[in-house]
Amino acid sequence: MSDGIKKFMFVNTKAPYGTVYALESLEVVLISAAFDQDVSLVFCDDGVFQIMDKQNTEASGMKNFSNAYKALGDYDINKLYVEKESLEERGLTLDSLMDLTYEDEDDDWAEKPSINLVSRAELADLMDQQDVVISS
């Protein structure tokens, strides 16, 4: 197994800014792109708040790192799973989130959405298929 490609899943369950986990988890994700592994990201529970559109940190003085999520597509990280139930519980829809896309090299570089809306049950199946799950 150690020479093959592993399935890495980063599970984001915490809101950004209140703690550093979202930012530092994203830093690991960006580094992981250099290792040619099968990388996916999950946003569930309060993790869905990480990819809210229109984050404005001007007055709070926090570092706004939300643009880095938009760069994921350029790093060939285009499997982003958002849990439907988590959005609903928080009164959100996909429209509340950033428009995250990637260019599909197998389809004449067509721009495609990176975000996949999945149910809780589908998410459980996806997690089950991973080799490495890193949550925060």
């Binding site: 369950t13 799950v133 925060s136």
Partner: peptide, 8 residues
């Protein structure tokens, strides 16, 4: 087990 997830 095949893999481990820590729910934090």
């Amino acid at each position: 087990h095949s893999n481990v997830q820590s729910w934090l």
